[in-house]
Computed example of a mutant assay.
Amino acid sequence: MNLMTIIIIGIILLGLIAFFATKVENKTTNFQSVKIPLDILEKEFGKVEINGGTLRFWGNWFGKPMDNYHEIKNVEFDKTNNILILTLDDGEKITMWNPSGLEIGQKELQIKKADKILFEWHLYGENKTGENLRFESYKNNGISIEFATDFMPEKRNVECHKSEPALSIIGY
């Protein structure tokens, strides 16, 4: 193989990687869904079919895309303060302030907007103690999404986008 052939193969491979990465990134757009008011979700939670999946906050994956699976086990909605709390299968908790635009599709749940999201979990494989509790905080300041965490912050490469849904739970 000469150098030109290697370069062409490299360009083709990079194009394929970019194509498939775009397909994964766009997975949350344009899905068939049903809109449900948040207070109805709390009251009718047991009757609403919600599949589990991978978590995404304003376009930022929790972990690698499609690398983990979470199911909603409980829903609380404080209508007075407009706070939604989702408790997940391993005790994780997602607290959202002023959420709106809940849509449930065949393999995805989305909440389009929120002022702030706090995601809390215990280190996986460890005892559920206070010292093992971790968090990710996302705040919509009107211009961008501010991110904070106490879980390996120096290694985190976070890309949040206001144009993305505040929360997506994307099923397999």
Rank of each mutant, 00 (worst) to 15 (best):
F19W: 10
A114Y: 04
M96W: 07
S144C: 05
N26K: 15
F20Y: 15
E44P: 07
F31E: 07
Y138F: 15
N98R: 09
F20W: 14
Q110A: 11
D78H: 06
I7D: 07
T54G: 11
N141I: 02
I85P: 00
T87V: 10
E136N: 13
A114L: 08
T5E: 14
G125N: 08
A166W: 00
N74E: 15
N60D: 10
F119L: 03
M1V: 15
K79Q: 11
Q110I: 12
K35H: 12
A21V: 11
N26G: 08
N140Y: 01
Q106S: 15
Q32V: 10
P153L: 05
I104L: 01
N74V: 05
K139I: 09
E146P: 05
L102G: 04
F77G: 01
E164Q: 12
Q106P: 09
D39N: 13
K93S: 08
I7L: 11
E71P: 04
L55V: 00
K73Y: 08
E76N: 11
F77C: 02
N81W: 02
S137I: 00
E76Q: 15
I8N: 00
M96R: 01
P153Y: 02
T29L: 14
Y172L: 12
D150N: 11
L14I: 10
N30P: 09
K47D: 10
Y69F: 13
L109V: 14
L133Q: 08
Y69T: 05
Q32N: 15
S163E: 14
E42I: 02
E159C: 09
G15P: 06
H161I: 11
T149Q: 01
G130K: 01
I7N: 02
T28Q: 06
E103F: 11
P37A: 08
T22R: 15
W121R: 07
L41R: 09
E44A: 14
